[in-house]
Design a protein around this nucleic acid. Structure first.
Lengths: 155, 155
DNA sequence: CCGAATTTATTCAATAATCTAAGGATTAGA
DNA sequence: TCTAATCCTTAGATTATTGAATAAATTCGG
């Protein structure tokens, strides 16, 4: 098995992993009875704690109006709550509700736990290598994201 | 830096990579003037070659009706074409158009090229380790996807 | 071969989600 | 205080998705 083959194998595995992640998101949304957008909001709130509506909007890539209705839906399903900021009453902080935290835990908890356990099977040096790989991939993507923001060159 | 820290670093990097991938998809769709659904179709067609409408539907996680209109849109923007299957004329094969191939190449080509170059900097043994890591992560996700398909247990 | 059952894709009406633009409330600064 | 800026919400128009009905083509048992 040549090095070129190994590169291809890694590339293919990355692709499959992305597909699997997408599938899990789809199934999770279905399980919770919400749509993908609302799931994304839930995920951002989990990762980054309570956010204002506009922070959530940019974190989830939504416009203001869409964010308002997304929060409405999340409140209606009891997964999140609006908390008026007492210091600046224009602001609305979106908190995960207890039920929201539980739902996230039920769905991603087992995956995270098992992932941790599997990572612990690697040595420290191996983990460093894996992180290096991930960081390089991330840098690559970040660089190209910047490029994609620029206007397309003339044809 | 403890092993536990390293596990966390890897976990965080994975999360960031997923976010970056999502962002690139968003920017790519905007660049092409299409929506995320159509972009997903484009991606599946690139990965798996010409597909029938129903194959594309299941590959992209869409219903039949949604697939028809997605193909309509892709045809209208000139990124894909319908080709009637001569053997079984109920079937419609969806092909990427030349312009579609070029668009995909313009957006993901540079990322893929650079990713390849960076992977080649790793040794064969390192690439094997990286693939092991990715395969384990994939197994983990696949297992939990199966779990998510099952009905929720009684509370 | 014939005709019923199946497969494949499309259409259509209803529903849902999103965007943009305008509005109302609140705060910050001159 | 008055004005401008900020933050969220609302409203109307647009776009996308679903689910069911339809149409066309194929398969297969008799």
């Amino acid at each position: 098995m040549s090095k070129q083959d190994r590169v291809q194998a890694v590339t293919r595995a990355v692709q499959e992993l992305q597909d699997a992640t997408d599938l899990i998101d789809e199934l999770a949304a279905r399980r919770l009875g919400i749509n993908r957008t609302d799931l994304r909001c839930l995920s951002r709130l989990t990762a980054r704690g309570p956010l204002t509506a506009s922070e959530l909007a940019s974190a989830a890539g939504l416009t203001g109006g869409a964010t308002t209705t997304a929060i409405d839906r999340l409140e209606r399903t009891g997964l999140a709550t609006r908390v008026r900021d007492t210091a600046d009453r224009r602001r609305v902080l979106v908190h995960l509700s207890e039920r929201g935290r539980r739902a996230v835990q039920e769905i991603w908890g087992p995956i995270a736990t098992e992932a941790q356990a599997e990572l612990l099977r690697f040595s420290a040096a191996e983990l460093d290598l894996i992180e290096t790989f991930l960081r390089r991939a991330l840098d690559n993507q970040t660089r190209h994201a910047a490029r994609l923001r620029e206007p397309a060159e003339a044809p």
